[in-house]
Amino acid sequence: MSKGVPGGASADPLRGAALYAENCASCHGAKLEGQPDWQTPDADGVLPAPPHDRTGHTWHHGDGLLFDYTKLGGEEMLKRMGVSGVKSGMPGFADSLTDQDIRDILAFIKNSWPERERAIQRQRTEAEHQAGN
């Protein structure tokens, strides 16, 4: 996993908004609202795209996991985490987005959260760093 990559350089949430619109909004929604029934797998067993606003679970994860999940994709991350039985529709963006692009998109998403969710997410990021991830 990427150690400290997300916070390693300054991120530009305004640039991230444009990149989000181009690369993420088609699945996660223009307003970060996610797909309907995002917690219920579809007929193929794939979970729909979750919201990235405060109603979803994105803010429950540290920067390292969010960065790697975006870069590598859901299937690869679930495999690396030892999670089985869950299918992910999240593609990896390593071939189409730079590390800076990903940092900027995550900054845009994080800027949408209320302070309470941001504070919890910062704690999760710090815990990742302390664990060496």
Rank of each mutant, 00 (worst) to 15 (best):
P51E: 05
G82I: 04
K31F: 09
G29T: 07
E117H: 13
K31T: 12
P13K: 11
Q39I: 11
H61C: 00
A21M: 12
A131G: 03
R122H: 11
E76R: 15
R118F: 02
S2V: 06
D101E: 06
L106D: 02
K79Q: 10
Q100W: 00
A49M: 08
L72A: 15
Q123P: 00
G7H: 04
V5R: 12
R116M: 03
L32H: 03
N133P: 00
R124Q: 13
A49V: 09
T55V: 11
G92S: 11
L66E: 02
I105A: 07
Q100S: 12
S88Y: 10
A11H: 03
L65F: 15
M90G: 02
L14D: 15
A127M: 10
L97E: 03
R80H: 07
K87E: 00
C24A: 08
G73V: 08
L65R: 14
R116H: 06
S26V: 13
A18F: 02
G74F: 05
F67G: 01
V5N: 06
D63R: 15
A94L: 09
S2I: 04
E117W: 05
D104I: 07
H57W: 05
A21F: 04
D53N: 15
M77H: 02
S112G: 11
G34N: 05
G45D: 01
Q39A: 13
G132R: 11
G64S: 13
E128W: 14
E22P: 00
V83S: 09
W113L: 14
E126Q: 14
W59D: 07
G132Y: 07
W113R: 05
S2G: 07
P36T: 08
R122K: 13
K71P: 01
G92K: 06
G64M: 04
A9Q: 12
P6A: 10
F93P: 14
G34S: 07
G73L: 02
W59P: 02
S2L: 05
A25Y: 06
E117L: 04
R124Y: 12
E22M: 07
V86F: 02
I120G: 00
F108N: 11
G74H: 03
I102C: 06
L97C: 10
S10C: 03
A127T: 08
P41T: 07
G34V: 05
M81R: 09
R103D: 00
R124W: 10
A131H: 08
Q123R: 13
P114S: 01
K79F: 00
C27F: 07
